[in-house]
Amino acid sequence: MSRKLQAAYILVILAALAAPIVVVAGVSLNAEQALLFPPPEMSLRWYGALFSSPDWLVPLRNSLVIAAVSALLAVLVALPLALHVWSRGGLLSRALYTLGVAPFMLPPVISALGFLVFWVTIGMYGQMAATIVSHGVFLVTLPVVTLSLGLGAMDPALVEAARTMGATRGQVMRTVILPLLLPYIVSGYAFAFVLSLNEYIIAYMVAGFTVETLPIKIFNSLRYGYTPIMAVVAVLFVALAVAVFGLIGRFGNLPRLLGAERVEER
């Protein structure tokens, strides 16, 4: 394949991935309550409507709270897990790592049903805390993976050097390991946050009728007919994802974070 053909291939695929988003962005600008593309008249009124209609504001707030707290939970569980697996090998460590990676690898419907029966059993079905904990468990895989990558990239001699210079175990953690791990903690949190915002099935099964999140709200509205507000939400989600991953790409080494080894540092 010539270089031009290669570039064309990449661009065609990217264009195909962008096409629905472009159309949705256009639709979100419709002046009327209609999904027309290209829109006959343009207006930003549906952007205003999202932020003024309580119908949509409540799910927006729910989604943000759930994403913020569950991503935090995921990181808080992933950090000791990744540290433990990194600092010692053995069967137990490997089992723990598998347990950390499994939630995100299985089809989410299965976990969703598991969470549903669990919360029903302990009587917390339908509460926001149930959604938060479920997301925290489901998304723990993302910080586990980023943190393990970060620890793997760290020169073990750094820890030993700190030890020989007199640092206690706690001091090594505070002055060496955690500062070096910070970018990976942040990106693990960001990954989990964005994916929690977008997650539907678990949120739906665990508390879909009482704690509406944005994806649930969109799906519910799909049944009663389309409004451009849905397009507005979709556009905002895409924009947020691009912003978050763009920032990670800007300030971190995204190719390295995703497992490439041959990409030069910038």
């Binding site: 020169d155 001699a157 030993e160 050097a161 700190a162 060496v176």
Partner: peptide, 17 residues
């Protein structure tokens, strides 16, 4: 333990922070 020996060490990879 290493942190109580009061030695200085230079690692092959240098291990600078």
């Amino acid at each position: 333990p290493a942190h109580l020996r009061g030695f200085g060490m230079v690692f092959q990879s240098l291990a600078l922070f």
